[in-house]
């Protein structure tokens, strides 16, 4: 029997990997993947808690999170494609028009 706190630790580590990816990666595709990683890290907690509490609520939430993550990915990829057409690259260093 693995205590439920271990899942929290695992999820936190995966979440931090995602956060680090968003902060330090310069490639927009990698940033999008890191955001997905963060959302999926949260899913681990929901499933573990759902099992721990013997409730189905957490797993329902996971279904919704997966759906929302798919929508976000669709919109994000569309934006990245639009930027790629304009700049010819998906590197964040080219996004320097707005500052101050």
């Amino acid at each position: 029997m693995i205590p439920v706190e271990n899942y929290f630790v695992l999820s936190s580590l995966v979440f931090l990997c995602g956060l680090a990816g968003v902060m330090f990666r310069r490639n927009l595709i990698m940033v999008l993947m890191s955001i997905e990683l963060m959302l999926n890290a949260v899913n681990i907690i929901f499933v573990a808690a759902s099992r721990h509490l013997a409730q189905v609520d957490g797993q329902i939430m996971v279904l919704f999170v997966i759906t929302v993550a798919a929508c976000e990915a669709a919109v994000g990829l569309a934006m990245v494609i639009a930027l790629f057409r304009r700049y010819g690259t998906v590197n964040t260093e080219f996004l320097r028009l707005l500052r101050g």
């Binding site: 956060l19 940033v31 808690a49 721990h52 994000g76």
Partner: peptide, 29 residues
């Protein structure tokens, strides 16, 4: 201009949503 603003808002908004969701998950658990 607007595409750059939109992608920046998208990335930070998604991170914010993920952080909020992480908080919700811990509160739910």
């Amino acid at each position: 201009r607007s595409q750059e603003g939109a992608i920046k808002y998208f990335i930070l908004g998604s991170v914010a949503a993920a952080i909020l969701l992480f908080g919700f998950a811990l509160l739910y658990a």
